[in-house]
Design a protein around this nucleic acid. Structure first.
Length: 923
RNA sequence: GGGCGGUUAGCUCAGUUGGUUAGAGCGCCUGCCUUACAAGCAGGAGGUCGCAGGUUCGAGUCCUGCACUGCCCACCA
């Protein structure tokens, strides 16, 4: 820090300088520890942002919280690892590059698979680092040397290994099932990627003529176009209305196909007419019914949801156009019996917003029950804890009702499924390496499955694959299970649940890689240590200042980079930390950030004040300070009341902050440091020691040196306390304190302050509180009496106790030096003061401002009256309780005693107040 | 259809295990260019803690119901 510091803190240059420094110096690199015992370790996996991503407030909240936690652990001396990386994000990335191609007038099919994938890699090389650069700017103390990409060779290898093992264990299977199909993306998607939305729809009632009779059977549908694929009509066996039709057939209108009437549970007699059309190729329930009755499956659409040749005259039409035409034709031909308004739950593709089509197709699935069983067990047993803990219930409910997971995607970008089909004998081969020939018929004509895996399949493996699995690496030994996962609730099922399922499967014997000679744990120990993380901390959504969800459509998206550029990273981080109360959404209000920018400025100026005095007094900087390994404020010499007080407060705050961080109560930690630094350290401590620092007014150099050293020592410790939340400004000032020659490379490597019980001084805190109260009372009186700022006045003080009187006498200069107090002199009197106005009475002292000025009697009377009401209310309330035997019997003695004392005080104050009113002649 | 949150000052939000007079930031009002900081200092106004019951000596805090509001999950044509 140069000697001529700007008056206002300018974060821009300082922050980028330190961000570069931290990364270039590899300060946060955790090398693989050598064999043997490791000290406390703390490892975090960064939820990998999409390689296509741009930093948003959600990322920033997430990363700020993680960074606070890991910096804190690092400073506490733990062996820390924060593993960063990016996700290849199958669909998102493919779409991004396809958009780019479209602008060039090309499609991915023009390029062909290989060239397209090469193009995506090229895209990634060019732009894929953007989000990591942004992270660097946040100050995220990740281990940049271990950065991964989910398509790296070693990770891809692990993905294949997992796939093959699951296949061998019959936990992956392939088959023709109804899946959620996005016609826009041209791929299957999982249940989770479908977002349901209630919309106003219609229920069309259609009658199908019964073959060989004049009867009709009426069915209702929300999707009339699918009737073209009907292969049955179902009625419930118990439904007597239809008993006579059992075994008969109906004619499918429009296509004039004969289809059977079947009896199936699918039909609910309570709903509509009790008869339901069955379309096995376009509805999951119908599909199941179709299997039960061996019905044909007639797919009437193609992959872009246009009607195909099975739809006869409707072939080629888009599904919604087909619906209109089908309805019109049914009506024209007299088959449409009614149309009712009906609210339907419409499934849309999470990514494209297109209405999802249930589609029959051949896909790969994970049979999840065995994995889910274990994933339930570890959470029920508390081997993984959730914060806030209501997410445990949400997680478990989901896991209890889980369905098989469709993992194949009809995309090009992603981990290709390691399965091959023999062109000659149709044998399917699933293998770790590309097979040379068919093991069954020996043919060399093998074709690899064209599908890729769901992105979440590979990211679900990261806690162990990113540490070297399937090899038995030292990293896996030391850093797995990771200590904590911090993430948003939006990926609780997508990612968190999958990591637990897969982690507890592949990091549990026999899948877990073990070293030769390693002693196996008991089953329970192994299970406990198979979890991908010990704890999950779920943070909420970042909303805008009005509490609205941010969205591009609404145009209320707050770009963190813009906020950072305006107010600085530290202030933005502080905002998020201070707002991040577990379980509550963060309403991001930039006015708040402005306030914390002001806080940074406050720190900056306090530093300027400190350096000004260091230089003026002629002290060297570093030597007065504690060693880097100090966990407290060694070197601080508590010479005065304010010294003992601030030392005590510092320790109290350090204790509180450590406890808060232990419980992930970021907001409490941040707010407490803020209050301490600004409200106690700056507002009171610095003001109180100013006289000691002044050599010019005949001050003592020794005294000044002690005071100045204390200031520096305390400042340095406060910086360490604050560092996890505001890493940049603390780093900057910390280096300046050591005059550019710090004992360590970074404050990030210094020790985190811990509370020292021996330095807690409750008596000093009480005395200081009285002193503050007295000073504030004088300021109040001046404001009330409208004393001109330049006028100085004498005060009279009566202390109720000799100890307090001695304390005040000892610290009278603090009162006299208070700029807002304007105290000319202090006189102690021997009895309670009642001369009025201009007096204030408290339990510990009375103070009277000696000032002759006409006051507004009406105003004073109003104030007295209001005060009196407050006293009366307190007295009455306390009196009620104290006359209650049950209270006296059951409440703890200190509460009773406190209340009694309070009542007495209030009574005394009331009496004085009345006297005042009388003297003034108030009504 | 299930489940989970929220409701505290004009605005945005805190308020660990129930305990004496419920807090912060911003905004607002008053006075200060005080030699670290006007991005500052000092003082002030402003809340029957959504409603109704209950438990308790004592409830913003625990329980029940209701209202309003937000979210998640769900293959009811």
């Amino acid at each position: 820090m140069p000697h001529e510091l700007p008056k206002a803190y300018e974060p821009g240059a300082i922050e980028t300088r330190w961000a570069d420094y931290w990364k270039d110096e590899k300060l946060f690199h955790a090398p693989t520890p050598p064999a043997g015992h490791v000290r406390n370790r703390f490892s975090l996996l960064l939820p990998p942002p999409n390689v296509t991503g741009r930093l948003h407030m959600g990322h920033m909240l997430n990363q700020t919280e993680m960074d606070i936690i890991i910096r804190w652990h690092r400073m506490r001396g733990d062996l820390t690892l924060w593993l960063p990386g990016t996700d290849h994000a199958g669909i998102a990335t493919q779409m991004m590059v396809e958009r780019q191609l479209r602008r060039e007038g090309k499609s991915r099919r023009d390029l062909g698979r290989e060239a397209f994938i090469a193009r995506v890699w090229e895209w990634r090389r060019q732009y894929g680092g953007a989000i990591l650069d942004q992270m660097k700017r946040l100050g995220a103390s990740v281990d940049w040397q271990r950065e991964y990409f989910t398509m790296d060779e070693n990770l891809s290898h692990a993905v294949r290994e997992v796939f093959v093992r699951l296949y061998e264990q019959k936990l992956i299977y392939r088959g023709n099932y109804i899946v959620n199909w996005c016609p826009d993306c041209g791929t299957a998607i999982s249940d989770l990627e479908v977002k349901h939305e209630d919309v106003a729809g219609k229920l069309w009632e259609i009658r199908y003529p019964v073959v060989g009779s004049n009867e009709f059977i009426t069915v209702a549908t929300t999707r009339p176009e699918t009737m073209l694929g009907d292969t049955a009509v179902a009625v419930n066996a118990k439904d007597e209305r239809y008993t006579h039709l059992h075994g008969k057939k109906v004619v499918l209108p429009l296509l004039n196909r004969e289809i059977p009437i079947i009896m199936d549970e699918l039909a609910n007699p309570e709903f509509g007419t009790g008869a339901v059309k069955v379309t096995p190729a376009h509805d999951p329930n119908d599909f199941q019914a179709g299997l039960r009755h061996n019905l044909p499956q007639i797919d009437v659409m193609d992959e872009s949801a246009h009607m195909n040749q099975n739809a006869g005259p409707y072939a080629g039409l888009d599904r919604f156009e087909a619906r209109k035409r089908v309805v019109a034709d049914l009506e024209a031909q007299g088959f449409l019996v009614g149309i009712k308004d009906y609210t339907i739950s419409l499934g849309k593709c999470d990514r494209s917003g297109t209405v999802v089509e249930p589609r029959l197709s051949e896909q790969w699935f994970v049979k999840v029950e065995p994995l889910a069983k274990r994933a339930i067990e570890v959470v029920e047993k508390g081997y993984i804890r959730f914060t806030p803990d209501n997410y445990k219930t949400i997680y478990l409910n989901w896991m209890y009702n889980i369905h098989d997971w469709c993992i194949s995607r009809q995309l090009w970008w992603g981990h290709r499924i390691p399965a091959w089909r023999c062109s000659d004998c149709k044998e399917v081969i699933v293998a770790r390496e590309t097979p040379a020939k068919c093991p069954k018929c020996g043919s060399a004509k093998l074709e690899q499955d064209t599908d890729v895996l769901d992105t979440w399949f590979s990211s679900g493996l990261l806690p162990f694959t990113a540490l070297g699995w399937p090899k038995a690496t030292r990293d896996l030994d030391v850093f797995y299970p990771t200590s904590l996962l911090i993430t948003g609730f939006d990926i609780l099922f997508f990612w968190v649940a999958r990591m637990i399922m897969l982690g507890c499967w592949f990091m549990m014997p026999p899948e877990k890689p073990t070293r030769v000679g390693e002693k196996p744990d008991s089953h329970e120990e192994a299970l406990r240590d198979s979890v991908p993380f010990r704890e999950v901390y779920i943070h909420a959504l970042v909303r805008d200042a009005e509490g609205e969800k941010m969205s591009k459509v609404k145009g209320n998206v707050i770009d963190p980079i813009q906020v950072i550029e305006k107010y600085g990273t530290d202030a933005t981080r502080f905002t998020l930390a201070a707002m991040a109360s577990p379980g509550t959404d963060v309403a991001f209000n930039p006015s708040r950030t402005e306030g914390y920018r002001n806080f940074a400025n406050k720190i900056w100026n306090a530093a300027r004040f400190m350096f000004m005095n260091v230089d003026r007094i002629g002290m060297a900087r570093a030597p007065s300070l504690a060693s880097a390994g100090d966990r407290g404020v060694a070197g601080f010499q508590a010479a005065t009341l304010e010294d003992r007080w601030i030392l005590s407060r510092f320790n109290g705050v350090a204790g509180y902050v450590n406890e808060a961080l232990e419980d992930h109560r970021f907001h409490e930690a941040a707010n407490r440091i803020y209050d301490f630094f600004w409200g106690e350290f700056c507002d009171w401590y610095i003001e109180l020691i100013k006289p000691r620092l002044m050599l010019e007014d005949g001050g003592d150099k020794g005294t000044a040196e002690v005071a100045c050293a204390n200031l520096a020592v305390l400042f340095e410790a406060a910086l360490r306390l604050l560092h996890p939340v505001m890493p940049f400004i603390t780093e900057e000032i910390w280096h300046a304190i050591y005059d550019g020659k710090p004992p360590l490379q970074s404050i990030a490597l210094a020790s985190y302050p811990q509370a020292d019980e021996k330095q807690i001084d409750l008596k000093a805190e009480t005395h200081m509180a009285v002193l503050q109260d007295l000073i504030v009372s004088v300021r109040n009186l001046r404001a009330e009496l409208k004393v001109e700022p330049k006028v100085k006045t004498p005060i009279q003080v009566y202390a109720h106790e000799t100890e307090i009187r001695a304390m005040i006498e000892l610290n009278r200069s603090a009162i006299e030096n208070d700029r807002q107090g304007g105290v000319e002199s202090i006189t102690f009197v021997e009895s309670s003061l009642a001369k009025l106005p201009g007096a204030r009475h408290t339990a510990r002292f009375d103070v009277h401002l000696v000032y002759q000025q006409k006051i507004d009697v009406a105003t004073e009377c109003a104030r007295l009256k209001k005060e009196l009401e407050k006293f009366e209310k307190n007295i009455a309330s306390a009196g009620r309780q104290l006359s209650n035997d049950a209270f006296l019997a059951k409440a703890p003695p200190n509460v009773v005693e406190g209340l009694r004392k309070q009542k007495q005080e209030n009574e005394a104050l009331r009496d004085k107040n009345r006297k005042k009113s009388d003297e003034l002649g108030c009504q």
